[in-house]
C-alpha cells in the first residue's frame, strides 16, 4: 500500500495537498456552464438546480462539517427570499445588494437562533430547528400585509444587473448570474473547509467531547458556522426571488427543509460537492419523472435515497471519489 521507498511529504505540504484543486473539480464547474451551450431550453431548470445546490451546500456546512442536524434550514432560505423581495417591492431592486440584504437578514435571525441551537444535540436539535422553521413560516403567513401571505409576494422587480444586463425572458442573464454567485459562494465554502476553522468543525463532528478536552470552544464554533450557513441559505433564497420576481410561502416550508436534507444525503454529506450534485440529481429526476408519472415520482426518490444510504455511506460524491481512487490506482 504505502510505498516506503518514496520519502513522505513534509507535513505542511501534505496538508496543502489535501486542499489542492483537482481536475475533476475544474471539469465539474466547466460542465456547469454547459446548459447555456447545449440545452438553452433548460436554462431555468439549471438555474433552479444551482440555487438549490447552494442552499444544500449551506446545510452541508453545519451538517456535514459540524455535525449539526437541522430540519428547519428552509427558514433561512425563506427569510432571505422575503427580505430581498420586500426590499425590491419597496423600491430597491438592485440585485447584488439584494443578495446581501437577503443573506444579512437570514444571518441575523440565524445569529439569534444559534444561541439555542449550539446548546443541543441529536433529536432535541432536530425538533428545535423544525420548530423554528414552523415558527418563521407561520409568522410569514400571518404577516399578510408585508409578505402577501398565501398569495405570495407580488410586485418584486429586479433591476438590470450592474445597470447593464437585463434579466431576459429566456433566462440567459439569470443563468450566468446564478452560476457566478453560486460559484463565488462555493469558493468561500471551499476556503472555509480547508481553514483552521473548517478543521475545528470536523473535529466537533468527529468527537465533540475530545474537542472540549483540547480546550475548544465548541459552542462558539457552532454558532459561527450556523450564522454563515444561515447567511448562505439567505443568499440562495434571495437569488430565487431576484430571478423569479416572486416569493411564495413554499420558500420557507417544512417540505423544502426536508427536501434539501434528502438532496444533501443523496449527494453526500461533508463532501463539499454533495449539495450541488444531490440537487442536480433530485431536481432533474423530479423534472423527468413528473412528466411520466407525476404522482409517483417520490416513490423513485424514496428508493434512490434508501439505496444510497445503504450502499454509499458517503453519498454519490463519496462513491465517485472512491471509484476515482480505484481507477487512479489501477491506472498506475
Amino acid at each position: 500500500m504505502s510505498d516506503a521507498s518514496v520519502p513522505a511529504k513534509p507535513p505542511a505540504e501534505f496538508l496543502a495537498d489535501g486542499a489542492r484543486w483537482r481536475w475533476a473539480e475544474i471539469a465539474f464547474w466547466l460542465a456547469a456552464t454547459l446548459p447555456y451551450f447545449v440545452a438553452q431550453d433548460y436554462l431555468q431548470l439549471a438555474g433552479q438546480v444551482l440555487i438549490t445546490g447552494l442552499f444544500a451546500m449551506s446545510l452541508d456546512l453545519i451538517l456535514g462539517y459540524a455535525g449539526v442536524v437541522s430540519l428547519g434550514h428552509a427558514a433561512f432560505f425563506g427569510l432571505g427570499a422575503y427580505a430581498c423581495g420586500v426590499a425590491s417591492k419597496w423600491g430597491w431592486g438592485e440585485p447584488i445588494t439584494g443578495l446581501l440584504i437577503g443573506g444579512a437578514f437570514a444571518g441575523i435571525v440565524g445569529y439569534g437562533a444559534s444561541f439555542i441551537v449550539s446548546r443541543f444535540k441529536g433529536l432535541a436539535l432536530i425538533m428545535i430547528t423544525l420548530g423554528l422553521n414552523q415558527l418563521v413560516a407561520e409568522a410569514a403567513n400571518s404577516a399578510h400585509g408585508l409578505t402577501g401571505g398565501a398569495d405570495g409576494l407580488q410586485g418584486v422587480h429586479t433591476w438590470d444587473l450592474l445597470g447593464y444586463f437585463h434579466f431576459d425572458l429566456y433566462g440567459v442573464t439569470a443563468f450566468w448570474y446564478i452560476l457566478a454567485v453560486v460559484f463565488a459562494c462555493f469558493l468561500l465554502t471551499r476556503r472555509m473547509v480547508h481553514s483552521p476553522f473548517g478543521l475545528a468543525l470536523r473535529g466537533i463532528r468527529e468527537n465533540s467531547t475530545r474537542m472540549v478536552a483540547i480546550g475548544a470552544a465548541n459552542r462558539a464554533h457552532i454558532r459561527k458556522a450556523f450564522v454563515i450557513a444561515a447567511f448562505m441559505a439567505g443568499v440562495a433564497g434571495a437569488l430565487l426571488t431576484e430571478t423569479t420576481e416572486t416569493v411564495s410561502l413554499e420558500t420557507l416550508s417544512f417540505q423544502r427543509s426536508a427536501d434539501v436534507l434528502v438532496m444533501l444525503i443523496l449527494g453526500g454529506v461533508g463532501q463539499l460537492y454533495g449539495g450541488v450534485v444531490g440537487a442536480a440529481i433530485y431536481m432533474v429526476a423530479r423534472d423527468r419523472f413528473s412528466d411520466v408519472n407525476p404522482q409517483y415520482w417520490y416513490f423513485w426518490i424514496g428508493l434512490l435515497l434508501i439505496a444510497v444510504v445503504v450502499f454509499l455511506p458517503n453519498g454519490i460524491v463519496g462513491g465517485l471519489k472512491k471509484l476515482g481512487g480505484y481507477l487512479g490506482r489501477a491506472g498506475r
Binding site: A19, R191, M192, H194, S195, P196, L199, K224, I228
Partner: peptide, 8 residues
C-alpha cells in the same frame, strides 16, 4: 481556529 478564510 476562528480563522475561516486562511489556509490551514
Amino acid at each position: 481556529t476562528g480563522d475561516f478564510l486562511g489556509r490551514l
